[in-house]
Amino acid sequence: MEAELRKLLARKISELWTEISGESAPGIPHLVGEISGGNEIRVDVDVVLFEDYHLERFIDDGTLFFILPADEKSPRALFISLWRFLQGKGTPKLLLPGARLEGPLRNTLEKLGFDVLWMTGDSVVDVWATKGHVRYEMRFQRAGDNEFTLVERKRVQ
């Protein structure tokens, strides 16, 4: 049953990848779906664009509903992120104001999937970066030698 579910989810992501990775539409693509069991597993997944990140997982009347940002760089990475999220083994790290990052800032942002375009400052660091097809302006406050707190994040169109 688990193998069948994994196969169905992988197939859905593959079918939706062109829509997920498309640059033309403004917004952040999210996988929005539901999974129901019984005699036969039913998986329904669509791509919806939101202004900001949304993350949701809940069960109602035996059906698992979910919303997950789809800003991974490959279908395989997105499948792994979705599978871990559905199993409750982790949630994608969403970079929201108040988030604290450790390590060299550029490297840490790159590990989170951001492409850093420009960075300047010392006690206050301004960053321009992209993730998927979304551009961001971010401002970090230095909290220690290699510690930073996100103060502000704005999407840029």
Results as ranks from 00 to 15, higher is better:
E147V: 07
H30F: 05
Q141M: 15
L49C: 10
L112P: 02
L5T: 04
T149L: 14
D44Q: 10
V47P: 12
I20R: 10
E102V: 03
G90P: 04
A10M: 09
V47S: 08
D61H: 03
D145A: 09
N146T: 14
E23A: 15
R155G: 12
T108Q: 12
E40H: 06
G103R: 00
D71W: 14
A3C: 05
I35K: 01
E51C: 11
W83Q: 08
G113K: 01
K89H: 06
P26N: 10
F148G: 02
L64H: 07
I80M: 12
D61W: 00
T18L: 13
P97M: 08
I41F: 01
D115C: 02
F65T: 00
R153M: 13
W128V: 12
R153G: 07
R155N: 13
G33A: 03
L117M: 04
R139E: 12
I80H: 09
L117Q: 03
K7G: 02
A3T: 08
K131A: 07
L9R: 03
A143M: 10
P104M: 05
G27M: 10
Y53C: 14
H133W: 12
L49S: 14
V151R: 14
E34F: 07
L96R: 12
R6M: 13
Q87F: 01
F85A: 12
K12I: 02
E152S: 11
H30Y: 04
E2N: 09
K73Q: 08
P75Q: 04
R139V: 15
T108D: 00
N107F: 01
E15C: 09
F85Y: 14
H30S: 06
I13N: 06
W17N: 14
R142H: 02
K131S: 09
R100P: 01
K7N: 06
I13V: 09
E34V: 04
F65A: 00
L82Y: 05
A70M: 11
R57P: 03
F85E: 09
I41M: 07
G144A: 11
I35T: 02
R155F: 06
V156G: 11
V45G: 08
E110V: 01
F85V: 05
E56D: 10
A25C: 15
F85D: 08
I80N: 13
L96G: 03
L49P: 10
R139T: 10
H54M: 13
K154H: 12
R142M: 01
V125N: 04
D60E: 10
F66Y: 13
E51Q: 15
G121L: 04
D115R: 15
D61S: 09
F58L: 13
L5G: 01
E110N: 05
